[in-house]
């Protein structure tokens, strides 16, 4: 069992957990993820690591409540335990001294981009951060994120915080201002990653995107998380989750992500009324 040591409510649908998992905390690196299972009937849920503390032996996760399992997770409290917690999974981010880098966290993607940003700064890069969300309530960790950046931008679709507009609008301005950008990492919803990659491609700026695919085992044995990258099929869980944004087939990935949409609705409905009513 893996104990929840701390819970923070970042917004009504956005929660942070610090989980006791010393073995994973000892080994994990920026860019990797874990898979958790709440209880005996639970599904395996992949979540990218938002932070870790090797001394305390903890892993920090931030998740949005988007379905049955994440809502159930969101109702758990400090002191409760998760049944299964597996990791660190996936390849770590490629941390090098690239020069001037832009780290983009969109929505809940702010969480996984945080440790990568920190590692890129420690590697001696000039780091420009962008935190983006639909609206103010969905932003979090702005001070923490900003502390890892030499320059920091915030934007919201509705203009309730920071600049009004999309990540691509902010990125465009940065590129125009700075001229030379050596590396971009973008994590967030597929449209944010797709359009960021589309913008940097003609400019030849190396761009990595972290794919949040449907997963089952997370160790390379099933291929549920397959992504088309260039001419090849890759498994996000062992070959990724980060891939070259200029080669990812984002449209296919978006449609694969919707594979179980009906079932997800059914699971939510069953969970909200107890399932014994026969109404679904």
């Amino acid at each position: 069992m893996y104990k929840i040591l701390k819970k923070e409510v970042l917004s009504p649908t956005l929660k942070l957990f610090e989980i006791e998992a010393p073995k994973i905390a000892k080994k994990c690196q920026a860019g990797q993820f874990v898979i958790l299972r709440i209880d005996e009937k639970g599904e395996r849920v992949p979540l990218t690591i938002a932070d870790f503390d090797r001394e305390k032996g903890t892993i920090t996760l931030i998740f949005a409540e988007v379905g049955k399992s994440t809502q159930q997770l969101g109702r758990m409290e400090a002191g409760d335990s998760l049944l299964d917690f597996i990791g660190p999974l996936g390849r770590p981010s490629e941390i090098e001294k690239y020069g001037r880098v832009v780290c983009i966290g969109a929505g809940v993607g702010i969480a996984p981009v945080f440790p990568i940003t920190r590692a890129l700064k420690e590697a001696g890069n000039e780091v420009i951060g962008i935190a983006a969300a639909r609206t103010k309530e969905l932003l979090f960790w702005l001070d923490e994120f900003k502390a890892q950046c030499h320059e920091f931008h915030v934007c919201t679709d509705d203009g309730t915080a920071g600049e009004k507009g999309l990540v691509t609008d902010v990125l465009k301005k940065i590129i125009e201002e700075k001229g030379k950008i050596d590396y971009v990492i973008v994590i967030g919803p597929i449209p944010a990653m797709k359009f960021t990659s589309k913008m940097t491609k003609p400019l030849g700026i190396k761009t990595m995107a972290s794919m949040n695919c449907i997963m089952v085992d997370g160790t390379g044995m099933c291929g549920a998380c397959r992504v088309t990258v260039g001419d090849e099929t890759k498994f996000a869980c062992v070959d990724g989750p980060e891939f070259d944004g200029h080669l990812i087939d984002f449209d296919e990935a978006a449609r694969r992500g919707e594979q179980f949409k009906d079932e997800e609705q059914r699971a939510l409905a069953a969970a909200s009324c107890g399932g014994g009513c026969g109404c679904h």
């Binding site: 009937k41 599904e43 049955k68 594979q259 079932e263 059914r266 069953a270 399932g275």
Partner: peptide, 9 residues
């Protein structure tokens, strides 16, 4: 499913 959370189609 949905007694167990993992779907299949």
């Amino acid at each position: 499913f949905p007694e167990y959370d993992t779907p299949i189609k």
